[in-house]
Design a protein around this nucleic acid. Structure first.
Length: 714
DNA sequence: GTAGGGTTAG
């Protein structure tokens, strides 16, 4: 026996002559239908097929890609024929080639079936006729498996059932693989109908049928249907297997049915079914979305103990849980473990890490991830760029922000939006870079974006730092012209500007504040004019603080205290701090345990922090005077002070210099960042000596030494 | 590349 081989590569495409007569003669619209599909098939094949590159002439658009099966008959029109001895090594080569041409033929046939969703019955049947009578169960399965539309699949199934007349298992296989097409096109109702048809024809469903149905229900967001089908499995004489349980664990996890998911999971463990990484990921995510990261981590540990190797999705799910629960500090370890484990990060890994790091202001880590993404040629989204830029504004990274902004503009994949411009303006403004901020503002307007209240707030801050009071007023007028209602943050910014403004120009800012918020204007007048009458003052401030949103109570209180310090009315600052404590705007500033008394200054403005520090030292003196025993250690926690918004100096350094000024023997803790500590003995001798020379409660703790411009940061 | 399997961020 010998193989009859076409030596030319024309098996990819056939001459017009071999077009079945039913095509060319009768239906011209069908003709067009096929031709339009062929054109796109040609394009694809020209990219991938060596044969097509070597024989460009075979791609004339008149030729049809799926008209006829190359193996269906032997009347090949190819010019050259070669006889090959079947036992020679060449025969094997040609046999492979022949089966590969059959494969590409079937693939193109499926492409045609999929290219119109759904084709009419006539279209589909015409396409399938190309198979002629040479159709095996294998081919039928191959084709059905790749069909994406349920209507097409139903038609093709019917065609094959007629053609092949399968029995028993073959029929079941064809139905099962058709169900997959229903899953792909999310046609659950159709899948149920197909199941009924199957039963009517006397085909007995198996676990594959049920797991396909259960997963379909899940993917169609019909969890109740998944449960319903799960409960039906046994009534069809089927004992659910690991796959069916696995599908159900995921179905329960996905719908947050924690109890059921876990009970099936426990059962899987008890019965030693192997669940795979995907099912574990579903369980981990389930815990993550219900805010139970630790439980997710427990499942992750268990998974490893059970010998299931975590994959990139598993790690991404864990990182997603960390992002949701804001446990940024744990992300680095998970990422480290992932790398050690040899699992390659993908885009989701990087973007999740970037969000975590940027949000937590781990700037070096965030920049590192950004560089890695660039190194891998990954496209950054606008959101990711913006998160980086926002972080730069928060931590004061000017150069990096500019570089990122330039990268963004030249990325070709996305353009800066309102938020990007706003962040960059904030970066410049926080650092008092007036001309740069103005430049970006102009660019923003050229891009077609009106300045927002965020931008205007930043510009107020910028001009304030530069002591350009008239420009601050100009920005306020712009805000009014744009019909933007000034919010509390904007007012806070004006208060902040006041602390940096020469006394003779304060009136200009106060006028703006009065227009923006009458109540606040009156409080500010009160402070500036040093009115007497405590009762009224407390009442007025309480009303003001109670009138604003809970999110801005603390910033407002902070700004007002800073203003008191700069106006050199420290008693008013103490009143405000006291009021803030009463209204629970400030909580747990002081704490006492057996071994240590502490002062917590995190999230306080510099003025508020220094006021709280003085109050605390005063309290320590009183405790000492009244004969109370001090603990072995006293500590002040300033936090790490990544926020450069407040002052270029930052709370840490201001606190340090203030303590030095007081001669207080606190020392920065070498192993505990953000803490200043002192031992009992050192504290006692200092408190005793300073109370003899000066009353601590009266100390002027302005850090910059100016008469009205305390805590200036420029 | 020939009947089951998806799962991950905002």
């Amino acid at each position: 026996m010998a193989f009859h081989i076409c030596s030319s590569h024309s098996s990819l495409f056939h001459n017009r002559q071999s077009f079945p007569s039913s095509f060319s003669s009768s239906s011209s619209s069908l003709h067009n239908f096929l031709f339009s599909n062929v054109a796109s098939s040609c394009k694809r094949l020209m990219l991938h097929s060596k044969a097509s590159l070597h024989h460009p002439k075979t791609h004339a658009p008149h030729q049809d890609a799926v008209s006829r099966d190359p193996d269906a008959n032997s009347s090949s029109l190819s010019k050259t024929r070669v006889w090959v001895n079947p036992s020679s090594p060449r025969a094997k080569h040609f046999r492979t080639k022949s089966s590969s041409s059959r494969y590409s033929y079937l693939t193109r046939l499926v492409e045609s079936l999929n290219s119109s969703a759904p084709p009419t019955a006539q279209h589909a049947s015409t396409i399938l006729k190309g198979l002629e009578d040479n159709v095996s169960e294998r081919d039928a399965v191959f084709i059905l498996d790749k069909i994406v539309n349920s209507v097409t699949a139903a038609f093709v199934l019917r065609y094959f059932l007629d053609k092949i007349k399968p029995a028993g298992d073959t029929e079941l296989v064809l139905y099962n693989v058709t169900l997959k097409a229903f899953r792909k096109s999310r046609d659950f109702e159709g899948a149920e109908k197909l199941f009924d048809e199957m039963i009517q024809r006397g085909v007995k469903p198996d676990n594959i049928t049920f797991s396909t149905l259960i997963n379909s229900a899940r993917m169609c967001a019909l969890p109740n249907k998944a449960v319903e089908w799960f409960e039906k499995v046994r009534s069809f004489g089927c004992e659910p297997d690991a796959m069916v349980y696995s599908a159900m664990v995921s179905a329960y996890a996905q719908t947050n049915n924690v109890d059921m998911a876990l009970s099936l999971y426990d059962r899987a463990k008890a019965e030693k079914w192997s669940l795979d990484a995907s099912t574990f990921s579903s369980l981990i995510k389930m815990h993550g979305v219900s805010g139970n990261y630790d439980e997710g981590l427990r499942i992750f540990q268990e998974m490893k103990v059970l010998g299931v190797k975590p994959n990139v999705v598993t790690y991404n799910t864990l990182l997603g849980g960390l992002f949701r629960s804001k446990r940024s500090w744990q992300a680095k370890n998970i990422y480290k473990e992932m790398v050690t484990d040899g699992v390659s990060p993908d885009f989701i890994t990087y973007s999740t890490l970037l969000r975590i790091y940027a949000g937590a202001q781990y700037s070096d880590d965030a920049f590192g991830i950004y560089e890695e993404m660039k190194g891998h040629g990954m496209d950054m989204s606008v959101d990711l760029y913006n998160r980086l830029l926002a972080m730069c504004a928060d931590v004061g990274c000017i150069d990096e922000a500019v570089e990122i902004f330039e990268d963004m503009k030249s990325s070709g994949t996305c353009q800066p939006n309102r938020l990007s411009f706003s962040s960059l303006i904030t970066v410049y403004s926080c650092n008092g870079k007036v001309s740069e901020a103005e430049g970006i503002l102009n660019e923003m307007i050229q891009f077609g974006f009106q300045p927002t209240i965020y931008v205007l707030t930043s510009l107020v801050q910028c001009y304030g730092k530069a002591k350009r009071t008239d420009d601050v007023v100009k920005i306020f007028k712009q805000l009014v012209d744009l019909d933007i209602v000034p919010d509390v943050q904007f007012c806070c910014c004006l208060l902040n500007v006041m602390t940096q403004t020469p006394i003779e120009e304060l009136g200009k800012i106060i006028e703006c504040i009065e227009k923006a918020n009458t109540q606040l204007g009156s409080v500010v007048r009160y402070l500036v004019e040093e009115k007497k009458g405590d009762g009224d003052f407390r009442k007025e401030i309480s009303e003001l603080l109670n009138s604003v949103d809970v999110k801005v109570k603390k910033p407002l209180c902070n700004c007002l205290i800073d203003l008191c310090i700069s106006l050199n009315v420290p008693n008013r600052a103490r009143d405000l701090l006291d009021l803030g404590l009463t209204l629970e705007i400030y909580k747990n500033l002081q704490s006492r345990s057996q071994n240590q008394w502490s002062l917590h200054l995190k999230k306080l403005s510099i003025g508020a922090a220094m006021t709280a520090l003085n109050v605390w030292i005063n309290d320590l003196s009183k405790a000492l005077e009244s004969g109370e025993d001090l603990p072995p250690l006293l500590g002040v926690n300033t936090g790490q002070g990544k926020h450069k918004y407040v002052s270029d100096k930052g709370l840490v350094s201001v606190c340090e210099s203030h303590l030095r000024k007081l001669n207080a023997p606190f020392h920065e803790a070498p192993d505990k960042a953000g803490w200043f500590l002192v031992t009992r003995d050192a504290a006692i001798s200092w408190l005793e000596s300073s109370s003899s020379t000066e009353s601590i409660s009266d100390l002027n703790f302005q850090v910059s030494g100016g008469s009205t411009v305390a805590f200036q940061s420029g």
